[in-house]
């Protein structure tokens, strides 16, 4: 469903290359973990997939289903089924969480030619999902992420993800700032979305998350490229030996 081929991306007005020939294919039903040291380009990859501006694609291609993903606006990518759970979710004071989520869900439905969801139907679903991903019902009425703790923000991202039912989930360091209980709840939410027709990219620093969201593939991203690919055991090896040792071996 997602095919990234020899992707080159630069920041700072195109002067600073970050991704230098990244190739990755995600098929329906697969969970891919991407690990890598700071500055290796993990977050850049997630933003390029979601369509944030400020990233210049200088080479390569990204196909999502039948579309050239790079040609699409962020909202068109969302409608196509891409969801990025952000590392730093944005606070929007003045806009209630449940309002925002309903607008979002209906915008996606409209873009897909589906009927909008009724208020009653929406609230029923929202309550159920909130309970499943451990979001306090009070937070649904509060302004989007405003005054939320780090953990509450991350859970709110997962809440959005489960509500919007994307085809490809991209999770950017969703585990950072979470204690072990929160990590489990979040992982449960993510796992509930695992299905044969849905792909996932899980970006993380730590092997710990992958105990709960068990990946089919683990990739090590370093210096803008995938340097090593393996099964879930690669994450364990990485935890024991560190990037330098593993990548030294690869080189």
């Amino acid at each position: 469903m997602l095919k990234i081929t020899d992707l080159h991306v630069a920041v700072d007005g195109g002067s600073k290359p970050v991704l230098k020939g990244l190739t990755l294919e995600v098929k329906p039903g697969e969970v891919h973990a991407i690990m890598g040291p700071n500055g290796s380009g993990k977050s850049t990859l997630s933003y390029v997939l979601a369509g944030r501006d400020g990233y210049a694609v200088t080479g390569g291609s990204v196909r999502f289903q039948d579309a050239d993903l790079l040609e699409l606006e962020p909202e068109e990518r969302a409608a196509a089924g891409i969801f990025l759970a952000m590392q730093y979710p944005v606070e929007i004071p003045g806009v209630a969480n449940n309002y925002f989520l309903r607008q979002s869900l209906n915008a996606l439905r409209r873009a897909r030619g589906e009927p909008e969801v009724s208020a009653a139907e929406f609230i029923k679903k929202l309550k159920a999902v909130a309970e499943r991903v451990g979001v306090d019902p009070e937070l649904l009425k509060r302004d989007v992420n405003a005054g939320f703790s780090g953990g509450e923000k991350k859970r709110n991202e997962i809440l959005q993800m489960v509500m919007l039912e994307p085809k490809l989930c991209v999770l950017d360091e969703t585990d950072s700032g979470l204690d072990i209980d929160a990590l489990k709840t979040v992982a449960d939410g993510v796992n509930s979305l695992r299905s044969p027709d849905r792909g996932m990219i899980v970006i993380t620093h730590y092997q710990r998350l992958l105990d709960y969201i068990v990946p089919d593939f683990v990739h090590i991203l370093a210096d803008g490229r995938i340097r090593k690919t393996g099964g879930k055991e690669l994450a364990l090896a990485l935890e024991e030996q560190g990037y330098e040792h593993l990548l030294g071996e690869a080189a």
């Binding site: 979601a50 501006d53 909202e75 969302a78 929007i92 607008q103 919007l164």
Partner: peptide
């Protein structure tokens, strides 16, 4: 960007 990545178009995101 955050709002648009959730499916709202630019005009709608700007309004909100």
């Amino acid at each position: 960007f955050y709002l648009r990545s959730r499916g709202l178009d630019r005009a709608q995101a700007e309004s909100i």
